[in-house]
Amino acid sequence: MFNNIVHGVHGYTHYKGGAGHLSFVMHRVSGLGTLLFLSMHILLESTAHYAPHLYERLNAGLRTPIALAAEILMAFLVIFHGVNGYRIAYFDLFHIDLWSLPAAPKAARATWIVSLLLWFPAFIIMLLHGLHVI
C-alpha cells in the first residue's frame, strides 16, 4: 500500500492533465481536508453535551490567528468542493456529453473563478468577525 501511495501521489503531481486534472486533485485534497475538519467538528461540538466545561475551554483555546487562518482556508476548500461537486454531478447525471473537449477544461476553469468569487466576501466577513475574538 505504501508503494501505491508513493506512485499515486507522484501521478497526482506529475500527470499533465491540465485544468481537469488539477480539479480532480483539488477535489480530493479539499474533500479529505473537509472530512478531517468535519470529524474534529463533530467531536468538538459533542463536548458541548458531554463535557460543557471542556467545550468552553476548547472553544476559547481555538480563538487564535492560526485557527482563524485555517478556518478561512477551510471556507475556500468547502466552497470549491461544493462548486466543483455540482459540476461533476451535473455532468454525470444530466450532461455526460460535456465530459469532452473543449467544454470540460473550460468548465473546470470556470469552477475556480466561481469559487474564488464566492470565497472573497466570505474571507472579508470571517476576517472582520475574527478580529473581534483574537
Binding site: 458541548a48 467545550y55 468552553e56 470571517m126
Partner: peptide, 16 residues
C-alpha cells in the same frame, strides 16, 4: 454560523 452569527457569538449558551 460563520458569517451572520460569527465566531465571537458562538459559545455554550448559543449551542444550548
Amino acid at each position: 454560523n460563520t458569517l451572520i452569527v460569527g465566531a465571537e457569538n458562538i459559545n455554550l449558551n448559543f449551542v444550548a
